[in-house]
Amino acid sequence: MHNFFSIHISKKLLYIAMMAGLILVYFFIFIEIVEELKEGELIEFDKILINFIQVPFSEQFISFVTTLTFFGSVTWIVVLIGIFALILALYRRKQLALYLIITSAMGGVFNWGLKYLFQRERPDIAPLLSVSGYSFPSGHSMASVIVYGSIAVVCLRIVKSKYMNGIIWFLAFLASLVIGWSRIYLGVHYPSDVVAGFVAGAAWLTISAWLLRYLEYKGRKNRS
């Protein structure tokens, strides 16, 4: 019995240490990007990547990429989260429904706060769309990581197949990557905006997933 509790506590401590370490890694990467941004050392890097990514260049492909980028928009996210939350509520998984809603909503507030804090103007390097608002970090990129990642977190608690969970996480990763790429291609974000959005989104997703796990643990403990 003593060995069982020792192993259980060790696993908990290891999990907490891993989560804390991961959040610190995201934090330091974000701070490094901010430092480079303040020193003006990202402009050349951003220009090179934008020129590289904006190929091929045709009206049909621009239309296709514009469709892709919609899947990181506020409109789509509200609809998507609303559908998933409703389904979860109908199946009496209200905690998971609230997790999706709160994580996505607070992630949006977090992104707005970061944009207001840094107030970086959008790129004027061959923009293919007219978009208002500040540029850093990319809201679409940050939202895609948070929203598709939080849906994957929920699926992890419902879908029992490790194979299916692996596919779900891969699709969430791919969706985020494609949406981030689309923002660069359309010229509405610098590559550094997109990377910063990915990092900030991953940090927020990690924190929210840890809080969900903690609340689930407290709930089980109170019921026992």
Rank of each mutant, 00 (worst) to 15 (best):
F110R: 00
L98G: 09
I87Q: 13
A152M: 08
F136S: 06
V178I: 15
I167N: 05
G180C: 03
Y134N: 04
W112N: 15
L186F: 03
D124K: 12
L177D: 00
L129H: 01
P137N: 05
A152P: 03
V109S: 06
A143T: 13
I179K: 09
Y148K: 07
F170K: 05
G113P: 05
L98R: 00
K160R: 15
V188T: 02
L90V: 12
Q119L: 00
G149A: 12
S150M: 04
N165F: 05
P123H: 06
F110D: 00
L174A: 15
Y99P: 02
A143M: 11
V109T: 08
G187W: 02
R157K: 14
H140R: 04
L186H: 06
S182P: 03
Y190M: 11
F136L: 11
L90I: 14
K115P: 11
E121D: 15
A85F: 07
I151G: 03
Y185D: 01
L88S: 03
T103Q: 09
L129W: 02
D124W: 03
I179L: 13
R157T: 07
P127G: 10
R92P: 05
V188P: 07
H189Y: 06
R120I: 10
L156T: 08
S150C: 04
G166A: 08
S135C: 12
Y99T: 00
A97T: 10
S130Y: 04
R122D: 07
S135A: 14
Y91H: 11
S150F: 09
R120M: 02
Y185I: 06
G149L: 13
G166N: 07
K115G: 13
G82I: 09
L128V: 10
L100M: 03
L114N: 10
I179R: 04
I87D: 12
A85L: 04
S138A: 13
V109A: 12
V159N: 03
L100D: 02
S135Y: 11
A143G: 09
L86Y: 11
F110E: 05
S132P: 00
Y148R: 08
G108S: 04
G166M: 08
I158G: 10
S132F: 04
R183E: 01
A143C: 04
P191Q: 09
S104I: 01
L96K: 02
Y185L: 04
I151V: 15
A126M: 07
K94N: 14
V178P: 00
A175M: 13
I146A: 12
K94Q: 14
V153F: 11
I158P: 00
V153M: 12
R157L: 14
Y99W: 04
V147M: 13
L86W: 09
H189S: 08
I146P: 11
L96C: 04
S138T: 06
A152V: 06
I168W: 08
V147H: 03
